[in-house]
């Protein structure tokens, strides 16, 4: 009697875990250089993972990358100069943004 629901739960969790690796996205963070409304693209100067007191979001690497933001979930619209964090999928050579977080403008730490 008791085994049945437990058994099904474990099976379900196992299946979910099996499919788990399918959901993985890359994340990058950087300074927004430009937003192209027409082509629906966003270019950032990527930051590294070296967080310091004066550079809490990391240091600029000088490496620019462009993202397709046509289907992305966007919070506070990013403008030039904002620090953004993007989760994205790589399809061929294109980076398709899934979610865009405006790190500097929404500053969660102050809420």
């Amino acid at each position: 009697m008791k085994r049945n629901p437990v058994f099904w739960c474990v099976t379900l969790l196992f299946l979910v875990f099996c499919f788990g690796p399918a959901w993985a996205a890359e994340v990058s963070q950087g300074n927004c250089i430009s937003v192209n409304e027409k082509d629906k693209t966003l270019t950032i100067d990527e930051y590294d993972l070296n967080f310091t007191k004066d550079k809490p979001y990391g240091h600029p690497t000088g490496k620019n990358s462009t993202y397709n933001i046509a289907t992305a979930l966007i919070g506070i619209p990013p403008a030039k100069g904002d620090v953004v964090r993007i989760s994205y999928d790589v399809k061929g050579t294109e980076r398709i943004a899934l979610k865009i977080m405006n790190v500097s403008k929404q500053d969660l730490k102050k809420k």
Partner: peptide, 14 residues
């Protein structure tokens, strides 16, 4: 005035 949805991206790099 400002009323934009807040989107959070977890920083998986860290």
């Amino acid at each position: 005035e400002k009323a934009a949805m807040l989107v959070v991206v977890a920083d998986t790099r860290r």
